[in-house]
Design a protein around this nucleic acid. Structure first.
Lengths: 243, 243
DNA sequence: CGCTAGGTTGAGGTACGTCAAGCTAAGTGG
DNA sequence: CCACTTAGCTTGACGTACCTCAACCTAGCG
């Protein structure tokens, strides 16, 4: 595994706290395997018991769950640098799948190796702990969005969150980023029907708040979007601090 | 701090994996402070930066978030034995409050002490990691419920989840448990209005599925409730296994 | 006895879902 | 080059799950 790939993870961790050279070396020296996925592929299938965890190096991935009628809900999104499947280190059978929403690249390391590194480097372990705690904080916000916000607020919140996360990972410039997904996928993220999703996207377009075409979106007025969404980025834990 | 209080936490951890006597001793030897809270009190306030974490010893606590109109959503519940505020070890400013939904008792330990114990006992650290990962798994399920399930299914799912968690913590017998909360609080958990919450509670009552009065609820037909909710307890990670 | 918190019910409104049709752009085969 | 198909987007009409407002009821309590 060439080093540049692992750098996306190291950069993500260094957004949380400064790392020692030894901690970085420990990460680099893990036996990483790189795999490429096409849009629609499954990175981690439901029902399996993973023995390795993966870091997303490129693309957009989603955690997909189904209700009993077969409707799907994407309960979480992952971007470049996210340690997507750190959870599986602690959990057993996957109760959902991780799927590629766009073409993706990911690197995988064995659970045993990760556990060894965590035992040897307690501060590294705390950084991993921070990643899982941050994921949980994002998940709580999504819960609030689905429980107590209108469709348009939900969409605005999603876009505000994504642009901040993508800026942090170096995948957004000028309030814009690649978003090559269909409105059907967006509907599954927002917990809406396709038709209603289309209508609120149109609303934001007509209000001059977003420009979304050919797989790229630009937020034309972040201040107003953040006001609509009641977006406060604290929960993303992007401030570097001793942990 | 007398030992019996810490035992609720040790019991919760031992539901995940066997612990060594040394690990238990390390937990017991932490400087725990016990505090009692009345219904409605705040255990951990929004906007603060906690320097200690708490374990719930008795009662029901909720994580409460607000939308900009001031409507509240309870995004997570905690029962006896839950390490409620382990997250704050890794995070900074609280973006929500933890409140007592019933009278509660909790024990608090300093972050620094917990970090020391985790550095010294890597397996203990992995168990804490498992707790946070499990919380996140529960949160993903709530996201699915709010996004893609009808009100009655949501309520059924909540009750099925609660009875399993309370059985595990020894607070439920014969499919019943104490639930001394108002329907207004239940509405904030389910993301519904009070009126509609009342209607679906009445539905489940009339269908002979639940008996809820005087602060106690009994699930009269768990099989049918689980079918309505599409409830599969795997995600609660209650199987003891090496972690 | 009046007050209050909580539960219950009805009537009407709204944010969303469902169904259906038509549109466009890209790809495919002749 | 043109039919033809298909995926995705868009719009209209209508249905429904849930919300809001309002009234009333009950039990507990000072």
């Amino acid at each position: 595994m060439e080093k540049p790939k692992v750098n996306a993870l190291i950069a993500a961790l260094e957004r949380k706290d400064i790392m020692t050279p030894e901690e970085k070396a420990a990460l680099v020296s893990l036996q990483w395997t790189r795999r490429a996925f096409s849009k629609g592929d499954v990175l981690v299938p439901e029902g399996t018991v993973p023995t390795e965890s993966c870091v997303l190096i490129e693309g957009l991935a989603g955690r997909t769950m189904l209700n009993k009628e077969g409707q799907s809900q994407i309960v979480a999104l992952h971007v470049r640098g996210d340690f997507v499947d750190l959870h599986s280190l602690a959990l057993q059978v996957m109760d959902h799948s991780v799927t590629a929403l766009t073409d993706c690249e990911a690197i995988f390391a064995a659970h045993d190796d990760i556990r060894c590194a965590m035992a040897e480097w307690p501060h590294l372990a705390r950084l991993f702990f921070t990643l899982v705690a941050t994921d949980a904080a994002v998940q709580r916000n999504w819960t609030l969005n689905l429980g107590r916000k209108l469709a348009e607020q939900r969409l605005a919140h999603l876009l505000c969150e994504l642009v901040v996360r993508l800026e942090a990972s170096g995948s957004s410039r000028d309030d814009g980023f690649g978003l090559p997904i269909t409105q059907a996928v967006l509907a599954d993220i927002l917990g809406l029907s396709i038709v209603h999703t289309n209508r609120i996207v149109s609303n934001l377009r007509r209000s001059g708040l977003i420009d979304w075409r050919e797989g790229s979106i630009r937020l034309l007025d972040r201040e107003r979007l953040e006001a609509i969404a009641d977006f406060h980025p604290n929960y993303l834990n992007l401030i570097r601090t001793p942990r």
